[in-house]
Design a binder for these strands. Sequence first.
DNA 1: TCGAAGTTAGTGAACGGTCACTTCGCATGT
DNA 2: ACATGCGAAGTGACCGTTCACTAACTTCGA
Lengths: 334, 334
Amino acid sequence: MRSRPRPTIREVARLAGVSHQTVSRYLKTDDTISKALQQRIATAIAQLDYRPNLVARAMRSRKTGRLAFLLPPGTAISSLEMLTGAKTEAHSAGYVVEVVTLDGSPDTRTDRVLELADSGLFEGLVSLTALPDVSSRRDPQGPPIIVAPHYDEHMRSVGELADAPAVEEFITRLADQGHRRFVHLAGDYVHMSARRRREVYIETIERLGLDSYGVIDCDWLAQRARQAILDLPEGSGVTAVIAANDVLAVGAISGAYLRGWLVPGDLSVTGWDDNPVAAAMTPAVTTVSVDYQSLGRRAVSRLLATLRGEEAPESREPVSAAIWRESTGPAPTT
Amino acid sequence: MRSRPRPTIREVARLAGVSHQTVSRYLKTDDTISKALQQRIATAIAQLDYRPNLVARAMRSRKTGRLAFLLPPGTAISSLEMLTGAKTEAHSAGYVVEVVTLDGSPDTRTDRVLELADSGLFEGLVSLTALPDVSSRRDPQGPPIIVAPHYDEHMRSVGELADAPAVEEFITRLADQGHRRFVHLAGDYVHMSARRRREVYIETIERLGLDSYGVIDCDWLAQRARQAILDLPEGSGVTAVIAANDVLAVGAISGAYLRGWLVPGDLSVTGWDDNPVAAAMTPAVTTVSVDYQSLGRRAVSRLLATLRGEEAPESREPVSAAIWRESTGPAPTT
DNA sequence: TCGAAGTTAGTGAACGGTCACTTCGCATGT
DNA sequence: ACATGCGAAGTGACCGTTCACTAACTTCGA
């Protein structure tokens, strides 16, 4: 049947007995075409099984309807959530989002982004990772590039994503419940988020005049967190553990369990990430949930604003929220 | 400085004092160009900050170096892992992978895929969701479309991903350890994976002549799993729980804990997903890890084989593996 | 010394759409 | 009756690259 080459707009036009331009107008749903012709063209398109070549269209019109979403290499659930949010936002503005992974060193990445920007494939780009010099080197006439650096080159959270206001909330409320002596189980410091949580922990303890047993480096390893609790000297006075994520929190709870301590009766524990398994345990783990989708939406909406020539809205509503569950409670009364 | 229009290959050619075709050859790293000219062209490119327009290139050459990875809407960690695997495989063959979300009904999706296929944007497409009639309706001359239906239209695992051989392994080994009476905590049956795990549970119990307390519908809710264990009558004889995922397993462990039962001393529990938090608990949960990346790699390698005109390799090595941890052990000796 | 083959570079068309401009037909106003 | 304006449709150029040919020059063997 239909054999070699894909039908083009001109063949559709020939079959419908109109000019190619009329078909082009029809495809753009230009309403200055008479009903009769619209019908003829529709029939011809169906008959030839015609589908427009988007590459050719993009070449002439410089409009591709596509945005690029640039991620550093590596796998993180958060990035998928952000992507989902980005897609939602882009879709409502009639754009398609594509994911492109950027590997290599920061400078290489900038080069690659500039290539993509000038490739004509995208009308705008959102990068979740930092790109040195990109704003000065990019073509001012080219597609806008929004840098929302949520990750460094190893998919580690930075910036907004690494903010740790919830740590402050945890400590404040636990102090209200009578806790005086805390310990922090920290993640791997190559992660900005681990550093930030530690910083906020130290600051808050200090500001509120509380007591800290210290910061224990756990490197995101549950085993270390468990051992840290097991190693706590008898009578250390620690009643609350601020863990850098849910895995460490669960490791800590595991350590408490092995010592025969009750959580939260003897020890309160907080985590981070809102892992569904941590919510299923007894005790369910108090944690922090991060609204990644809204971060993705926000990045794209900034891009869309720039595309429309508007000033980019710089909303800074909080994206993370503490979720209080069973692993925290009043300090023991002893 | 550099102002309005992007420099083209012809401007580079003019500046370098050669023809545009020579520049084109240079860009393809065609080695039939004298060293002297190569040098002049390189200088001109650098001076003009020229970057090739990939859209124009794609239009003429019909080669875009891009593959599309089609996902149903929805968020799942697994799909990100598969994407990572797909990227690795594609990258090693010099292709870039783009993610496109397919929404709408199955028929709408097929239409959209055909549009994408004939859009000229991609040299091949991999769909992780079923596409009715796509093989009969697609242009035989167009880019190949591989359908690896791991998900249905709601991002629920189907096919290979829903296979549940590990359930068989769990039951067999637990039976070896003296367990005779089992219970299955099932997920939401709209998920093929939940149905498959239940089926394999029932079949295996039957085949080995074991005893089942029954299948309890838990709908992926930890609360239900916990309650199911709490509701187990005293002396039910159940010593092993096969839960459909880690959340249900942890809910079950939570129920056992509330009844004062020891895991695995009184009750063995298995999960599914290898959630890191479930591994951090005491007891660490016996579970199943699925190698999503290899699924992604495999799908792309099938596509690449088709692109090269080879027969697609249909490897069926197992993608999931049981991980035995502390939540399972010998049956109580009473 | 000359022709064949090989190497290096150039010329113009072509890819499949859209843009800018033109043409045609008809209603309208004076 | 004729200029004016507007809507509907057509004409040909153009977007930036690569492809298919062709041209010029070099090398080499007989």
